[in-house]
Amino acid sequence: MDDPKKLAEFQEKIDADIKIEPRDWMPEKYRQNLIRQISQHAHSEIIGMQPEKNWLTRAPSIRAKKILMAKIQDEAGHGLYLYCAAETLGVSREQVLNLLHEGKAKYSSVFNYPAITWADMGAIGWLVDGAAIVNQVSLQGTSYGPYSRAMVKICMEESFHQRQGYEVVVSLAKGTPEQKQMAQDALNRWWWPSVMMFGPHDAESAHSNQSLKWKIKRESNDELRQRFIDKTIHQGEILGLTFPDPDLKWNESTGHYDYGKIDWDEFWNVVKGNGPGNKQRLNHNIAAHEDGQWVREAAIAYADKINSKTKTA
């Protein structure tokens, strides 16, 4: 058990909005909770490269290809910052990747859906990055220093992604009837998975209370979800697109949009591994890791050679 005095001091720091740094004392549960959340976040960035990579080689213009390539590269960079942030808590990248490959770590379920048309590149940027920003802006205020600083860096890039994705949707919505249909179809497929990105409703969220008390999370799943919905509806409507939710309505008295029932059976099914792409995403990542084994070994062997040379010299 953690020392109650230390625990009280820790909570005082949290309450005073003083960031916790790697060398500071922290409850073991706080550390474990953070490791879980940060590595899960890192995996999401990395697995999230795959649906977009699926259209990189079919991007329809040089400009679109440059933007998409740079975007996917940003996501790799986000993964890297986050793995580094997790390392400050005493877990190596190798360790957390192994957990991912063994199917023991989660990542955002939204990336288990397939990207089947070019319009999905628009919808992913607009909705998935759009939802991610809402979450990550909130996490800039997280109590753990390295995680908070990673979020500040990442958020600047995410807002570009969201704008660029929306720009793709705009150009399709204003394009030929077939293109407009493509955009509508992508919105139909990506809307609910994006809404689900915020996780279960507050009443059902397993980790929420403690996370809020320790300020690992700053706002609840439902608060964040509502913010995402409120900021997104107008962006779709001005393009003449419709959202696949008949219950979506502006509510004058709450000042928010009301929305329909979320299909939690689908959500849990995908979380448990039964989404359309779970196996494919994981297998891709495992195969790349295994293909790279000999390269990583060579790099280590070479570095060792150089080190022993400089030592004897």
Partner: peptide, 18 residues
């Protein structure tokens, strides 16, 4: 571009994309 997300490690994914 075809190699995207397949590099031996993340640093190399970033570098080759550059």
């Amino acid at each position: 571009a075809e190699y995207c997300s397949k590099a031996p490690h993340l640093e190399e994914d970033l570098a080759i994309t550059n």
